[in-house]
């Protein structure tokens, strides 16, 4: 930037002017309303008596005066001043936020619900997809839900996310259909600054809320665990046990090669530890098995975590020195 322009723009006096200009811009949003334009909730309910009992039983009907940001509370906080409508009884003379404001009146909701859960709303995936507050919440005739949800949480979410709903029917799934978890156990539907999920700086942290035993940080890591749990897990549901995207060993073999023992041809018949070995170390006594031609393949290529059980990380070195203790056997 040209230094003269910079000096002009940010000299002491002009900074004040910039500030005043900003205040002017911010203040232009407030519509000119006078207290005389408002009639009060009691007046509204004289005609809309079907709403009377119900509204007072909702969170909105219970708000203290200080919790309303404008001149009015009750019905007129959302529907605007009612005096003209009371006189004319014309629906055109009262604000219908759903029909008259963009995105089902979500901006109106955000006048009060500015921070906390909704701090990130404007930048959320739902907002970017034109999901409005009323897509999930029902404000009238809904006294039984303090969060004013339009149904159960699953009903609301699965209206759009039907493919996810079907995944919960797979043999391995998080217990959502059993009612022990809900979508919001992992997802922050109002937006999270990092991901579309709740309680986490990264997607991994969202999983760790319940699976702290895998948090570490460990001495011996399994790097995809540190990267993203979904590299191996399909968190909504899968055919393979433990929500694995594919069953072992194939999920593992995409990033690793098998042990060389898997090319060994197995012997046929029963076998047991040789007597000479047992004589030297009685701890080997009593071990026996049955072998077939493909036994070593069955050992090495059925389920890697039978031996690499600490697959999510460990602080204990595994036995082999040449493997540098990294085998996650302990």
């Amino acid at each position: 930037m040209d230094r003269r322009i910079f000096n002009w723009a940010f000299s002491d006096n002009r900074l004040l002017l910039w500030g005043l200009a900003l205040c002017l811009i911010l203040s232009t949003g407030a519509a000119a309303q006078s207290p005389a334009d408002f009639v009060g909730t009691e007046t509204c309910l004289d005609c809309h008596d079907d709403m009377a009992a119900d509204f007072s039983r909702t969170v909105h009907g219970q708000l203290g005066d200080y919790q309303y940001p404008g001149l009015a509370n009750g019905c007129e906080a959302c529907h605007g001043p009612g005096a003209k409508h009371v006189d004319s009884e014309d629906p055109e003379d009262i604000l219908n936020p759903t029909a008259e404001m963009g995105n089902d009146g979500t901006d109106l909701c955000l006048d009060c619900h500015r921070t906390g859960h909704t701090l990130n709303w404007e930048m959320s995936t739902h907002a970017e997809s034109d999901v409005s507050c009323l897509s999930c919440h029902k404000l009238h005739d809904n006294s039984s839900s303090r969060a004013l949800l339009a149904g159960t949480e699953e009903d609301v979410c699965f209206t759009c996310h039907m493919d996810t709903q079907s995944k919960f029917q797979l043999p391995s799934h998080h217990p959502v259909r059993e009612g022990f978890m809900t979508c919001s156990s992992c997802h922050d539907t109002h937006g999270n600054q990092f991901q579309e999920i709740a309680d986490g700086e990264t997607s991994r942290d969202a999983c760790l809320v319940c699976h702290q035993q895998h948090a570490g940080p460990f001495v011996f890591e399994h790097s995809p665990v540190m990267e993203d749990c979904t590299i191996c897990h399909d968190v909504h549901g899968s055919v393979a046990n433990n929500l694995l995207r594919q069953n072992e060993p194939f999920i593992c073999l995409q990033c690793h090669q098998p042990h060389f023992h898997s090319i060994l041809t197995g012997a046929e018949g029963d076998y047991s530890t040789p007597p000479g070995v047992v004589a030297q170390d009685p701890n080997y006594d009593g071990l026996s098995g049955t072998s077939h031609a493909d036994s070593m393949k069955r050992v090495m290529l059925t389920k890697c975590t039978q031996c690499h059980q600490s697959i999510h990380g460990s602080d204990l070195p595994s036995q082999s020195i040449s493997g540098q203790g990294r085998a996650l056997n302990r």
């Binding site: 055919v239 069953n247 194939f250 090319i263 060994l264 041809t265 393949k297 069955r298 059925t302």
Partner: peptide, 26 residues
């Protein structure tokens, strides 16, 4: 031979049946 201790032992590079070990069907 894949083992000096057992010269008759040769490698088995036939992996055509390993899919059977961990196929799933529910």
């Amino acid at each position: 031979p894949i083992s000096p201790d057992n010269p008759s032992s040769v490698a088995d590079y036939d992996f055509s049946s390993i899919n059977e070990y961990s196929d799933l069907d529910y």
